[in-house]
Amino acid sequence: MQSSDRGKGYWLLIVPFVATLWPPFYARTNPVVGGFPFMYWYLLIWTLLVGVLSAIVYRLNHPKH
């Protein structure tokens, strides 16, 4: 049986908090990509990265048979 709490790689899930809840990291305009100021494409990428990180942690804890 799986234990949800002593799971592997849970520390990875802290990264999105640090990366998106600390605006000094990203509240600026440059570099602009595709017309998007930095803050906007940076946060946009994080909406995808957070899913990837969760998928990695899921896979670490529930390996394919």
Binding site: S4, L13, T20, W46, L53
Partner: peptide, 26 residues
């Protein structure tokens, strides 16, 4: 820009869901 708080909001909600909510379900 302040309206974009919704983006980090919907980013961090999922790690919390991943860790906490299975416990409530079980």
């Amino acid at each position: 820009a302040i309206g974009f708080f919704a983006v980090p909001y919907t980013v961090v909600v999922y790690p919390i869901m991943f860790v906490v909510m299975p416990r409530l379900w079980r």
